[in-house]
């Protein structure tokens, strides 16, 4: 390995150039992650430094406790995973479709007042999520705007933020299944019965889902819009010459070209939704009956309320693994298929 030569000094220069970025990343990103990883392996109770010999080292106990011990901690964790899974399942598709739809409308050449609509759709994204959450609390209050609207058309609106019933349970109740079938209620996995796993998002969670879809679709709309405006018009025109109708052109020509943007939007959506915290903190704190408990909020509560910082950190690392797994999965699903 003789790296010397005419370009021998470039390597040193390169390192010097990237050093500021590396130092900042290391100090504010890698280092805190390593420290949190250490905390997750200890029984630190939040008094003084976690990096002294007096802090008990417990190995992987904080992690195994989340999956293997039949107690409240595991039940809370699994409940939070269930709630967040339903949340992701609804929010990601809805916000992606809504964002794409809005972007397509704005990209339409015949639309008038484009900049007005663009601003209007984007506005929720640039407003503080705490401020929007508080406004939504008022709108979804028992005597609030949403229920007033519903009652105007003759619907008796639910008590949004105090209704812990899951949507699937409500639907089953409508068709005559009032109590859990024994097959589902008596068996379960990881501390929750099958009946609990299959509850669906609660009414309270639905209000939060509405809020999040509304606020984030603006951001993703801008991404789709940028991608749409970059697409070569010739392909679309070629499709027209070949006699493709609008739907065929969208499905066969536009959408495939949006694949990279779609990947970006879905990935960012997955990451953001698995980490949902501020809306929960402001609006519900996990209530009613734990149906809006999410891993991020549970991690915070375990650490700062129960002084169990080790478990709290462990929950956040499990959450990190979940996000990585889902991102890899959807990367595989959205891959370029050859010979298609």
């Amino acid at each position: 390995m003789s790296a010397k030569g005419i370009r021998g000094n470039e390597r040193t220069a390169g390192w010097i150039f990237v050093a500021p970025a590396l130092i900042i990343l290391g100090l504010f990103f890698v280092l805190p992650i390593l420290m949190a990883l250490w905390v997750s392996l200890t029984g630190w109770n939040g008094q003084g430094s976690p990096f002294t010999s007096r802090v008990p080292f417990v190995g992987l106990h904080n992690y195994t406790a989340l999956f293997a011990t039949d107690d409240l901690a595991r039940q809370d964790f699994m409940t939070s995973i269930r709630n967040n899974a339903y949340y992701v399942l609804l929010v990601v598709p809805l916000q992606t479709v809504l964002a794409l739809g809005l972007a397509l409308v704005l990209n339409n050449r015949i639309l008038k007042g484009k900049s007005f609509f663009r601003t209007a759709f984007f506005f929720p994204s640039v407003t503080s999520s705490v401020a929007i959450s508080v406004v939504f609390l008022f709108m979804f209050a028992n005597g609030g705007a949403i229920n007033a609207l519903l009652s105007a058309v003759g619907i008796n609106g639910p008590q949004w933020f105090s209704d812990p019933r899951g949507l699937i349970h409500i639907a089953l109740d409508r068709v005559g299944v009032h109590n859990a079938p024994a097959a589902l209620a008596d068996h379960g996995v990881l501390g929750l019965t099958w009946w609990d796993w299959l509850s669906g998002p609660s009414v309270a969670m639905c209000a939060i889902i509405t809020l999040v879809v509304w606020t984030t679709s603006g951001t993703f709309m801008v991404m789709f819009l940028a991608a749409l405006q970059n697409l070569p018009i010739q392909l679309d025109e070629a499709g027209m010459v070949d006699g493709a109708n609008a739907w065929q052109r969208f499905w066969r020509i536009t959408l495939p070209q949006l694949r990279p943007t779609m990947f970006l939007v879905v990935t960012l959506g997955l990451i953001g939704t698995w980490q949902v915290f501020d809306q929960i903190y402001v609006m519900s704190q996990g209530n009613p009956a734990k149906t809006t408990l999410t891993p991020a909020f549970l991690s915070y509560r375990t650490a700062f309320r129960d002084f169990d910082y080790g478990s709290g950190a462990a929950i956040s690392f499990v959450l990190f693994l979940i996000i990585v797994l889902f991102t890899l999965l959807q990367r595989w699903l959205l891959r370029e298929r050859r010979g298609h």
């Binding site: 290391g26 100090l27 280092l31 390593l34 420290m35 430094s49 990096f51 002294t52």
Partner: peptide, 11 residues
């Protein structure tokens, strides 16, 4: 650096 921070945090 983690170690250094650790000693910095020490009581």
């Amino acid at each position: 650096a983690t170690g250094a921070c650790g000693s910095g945090f020490d009581e």
